[in-house]
Design a protein around this nucleic acid. Structure first.
Ligand code: FES
Ligand code: FES
Lengths: 152, 152
DNA sequence: AGCAACTCCGACCGCATTGGTCTTGCTTAC
DNA sequence: GTAAGCAAGACCAATGCGGTCGGAGTTGCT
């Protein structure tokens, strides 16, 4: 259930790496790929997507590479996933026609949308800076992540 | 992102319908399918899966059909989704080998697991009975759904 | 009991999406 | 000028989802 695509997974790994190495200037796609043993060409394409979305800045040429466009503290996991996997959402009702086949008959559409929003809130509360140093169950953790209440 | 399969969607619809019609005895898969204009054979298979998972009880023969195994108040959305889509989780690292290719190198595995757990908690707090009468933003809603705090 | 209708059940198949690769071209530093 | 690196597109293989088919079992009626 609720599978996150591998591309998004790779994207988050790369983001985290770039956040850690932010002092060393730009990092090439090849370097990141080798550091984690993931297909270089695939990661390159992912980074391009992220760059087009404005999350990364790219610099071509020798000693070029990618760097974070904003501070690691200011990039949410939700943005990353949305940039890579597109605005797909939990309601599978998005067919090619743009709308669900069961336009009026589906009765659980609205409750699921609420759930969807909650998950969105949850992911928006997670920033890449949080991935670097996993804050254990400290009081600050609840504050950092935020509280998500699900109301049907 | 985070797409819920159409099967699970159909399953939830069926569960809701069965909960509403619980007084009228068992309902056949064909009846439910026609009520919502979804492929009958497909829904049949979904109901079979749910029956095998113990969420529904099936009764063959004339005037047979399916009925809820437990009270609608006691079946969570999480159980339904898990029964249909299997125990797939947000970490896409479950290859055919059973474990991720990046066994030690992946650094975001643990944070994502926490997120996964939070979503699980969220879905577990939603019961089929909640789908029937959508409780608007009442104070009881927060109580019913529970509060989910995400702590990395 | 025998029959017929009805419903569940398991196996099967086409297709969309995803993960991954290759080729080509453009930009920049040295 | 040349090598390092990004950018962009087409292209391919496989997983798994959505959907379909025929069969086995059960119930109610005569
Ligand atoms: S199937 Fe379209 S809203 Fe549920
Ligand atoms: S890719 Fe396996 S844990 Fe992230």
């Amino acid at each position: 259930m609720l599978r996150l695509t591998k591309k998004a997974d790779y994207g988050l790994i790369a983001l985290k790496y770039l956040a850690e190495q932010s002092t060393n200037g730009a990092q090439s796609a090849k370097d990141i790929a080798e550091a984690y043993h993931i297909p270089p060409q695939l990661l390159a394409k992912i980074l391009q997507t992220l760059a087009k979305s404005g999350l990364l800045v790219s610099h071509a040429g020798t000693n070029g590479g990618y760097a974070l466009a904003r501070s690691a503290h200011d990039i949410s996991a939700f943005e990353v996933i949305r940039a890579i996997d597109g605005p797909l959402f939990i309601t599978s009702c998005i067919t090619i026609h743009g709308t669900c086949d069961l336009h009026g008959t589906c009765t659980i559409k609205e409750p699921l949308r609420k759930v969807n929003d909650s998950i969105k809130e949850l992911l928006s509360g997670i920033r890449v800076s949080d991935l670097i140093e996993p804050i254990e169950d400290s009081p600050a953790a609840a504050l950092a992540g935020g509280l998500v209440s699900i109301a049907l």
